[in-house]
Amino acid sequence: MKLFAGCELLYDVPAPAPLVLMLRPRSGAGQWIISEEYQIEPNIPVVEYTDLYGNLCQRLVAPEGSFSVQISLVAETADRIDVAPGAPFVPVQDLPDDVLQFLLPSRYCQSDRLGPLAVDIIGDATPGYDQVEAIRSWIQSHITYQYGTSDASTSAVDTAEKRTGVCRDFAHLGISLCRSLNIPARMVVGYLYQLKPMDLHAWFEAFVDGRWYTFDATQQEPRGNRIVVAYGRDAADVALATQYGAMTLTEMNVWVEEKI
């Protein structure tokens, strides 16, 4: 499906403040970026760089006063995500070098503390894809999706204990449970067509049978038509805006529509 998507961020800036944005998706597996338009008001210099995970980052200093950023894009997306029941576990010694980092505990994903829970969840599932799917299904059925029950400090351990959260929390828990079983897992943020209510979305990917597969514990069934914006170890790596000053986000608008 061809999608028209984007977001707008409006800020009030009391004094000039450095800002790093991560808003530009790249073409890749399951998506082709046909066109994009990036608007910043007022117009100021921007430097772009690529971070350790291949994400495009825009670095700037927001001027005093009202400041806005808007990106809109057209992307061709896959209508379905790949699923592979029975796909095998990859032994750690056979993992690619750049995948090893996604086995380690990280700020929001304390995989070293969730091993017993992971073992209980997977039961006798075949090592690999089936174990990850058991984790995804357990989170979807045992964790309540509820706004206002978590914040920027909430970790996977917190979510496992409270059994509530939002998409970011679901992803952190899934990542942590996978890593505790020596299955590499990473955080993904982006757009999902027909997400209700519409917002930027988070899910996770797990590495089995030599490639990454998409898992979304907020959805009952596999859903395609996603636009990935960024990858990382957890939310600390994929913040769409990181500010270094006393600026206030006053409004945020997100849209994903079918492009006719």
Score class of each variant (00 low, 15 high):
Arg59Met: 11
Leu200Asn: 06
Phe89Gln: 09
Ala134Gly: 02
Met198Trp: 00
Val99Ala: 04
Gln140Glu: 09
Leu114Trp: 08
Leu173Ser: 06
Tyr129Trp: 15
Ala160Asp: 08
Val119Gly: 00
Pro85Ile: 01
Pro88Leu: 11
Val119Asp: 10
Phe89Pro: 03
Val157Asn: 00
Val74Asp: 07
Ile139His: 03
Pro91Asp: 06
Gly165Asp: 12
Phe67Gly: 06
Asp112Leu: 01
Tyr129Lys: 10
Ile71Gly: 02
Ser180Gln: 11
Leu95Ile: 14
Pro88Glu: 10
Val61Gly: 02
Val61Ala: 10
Val92His: 10
Leu200Phe: 15
Val157Asp: 01
Asp130Glu: 03
Ser180Gly: 10
Gln93Asp: 15
Ser106Lys: 02
Gln194Lys: 13
Val157Tyr: 08
Ile135Cys: 02
Gly128Tyr: 11
Glu76Tyr: 06
Asp94Ala: 14
Leu60Val: 02
Ser150Arg: 01
Trp138Phe: 13
Thr164Leu: 07
Ser106Trp: 07
Tyr129Thr: 02
Phe204Glu: 13
Ala62Glu: 08
Ala152Asp: 02
Arg186Gln: 12
Pro85Gly: 00
Met198Asn: 05
Ser141Thr: 14
Ser72Asn: 07
Leu73Ser: 07
Ala75Glu: 02
Ile139Gln: 04
Ser111Cys: 15
Thr149Glu: 13
Cys167Ser: 12
Gln140Arg: 12
Tyr145Ala: 07
Thr159Gln: 03
Leu181Met: 12
Cys167Thr: 06
Ala84Arg: 06
Ser111Met: 15
Ala160Asn: 04
Ser180Val: 15
Asp97His: 12
Ala125Tyr: 04
Cys178Val: 06
Lys162Leu: 04
Val92Pro: 15
Leu114Thr: 00
Leu95Gln: 05
Pro96Lys: 01
Val74Trp: 09
Pro63Tyr: 12
Ile183Arg: 01
Pro105Tyr: 11
Arg179Pro: 14
Glu133Arg: 13
Arg168Thr: 11
Arg186Glu: 09
Val157Met: 02
Ser137Gln: 14
Lys196Trp: 06
Lys196Val: 10
Ser111Glu: 11
Asp94Ser: 13
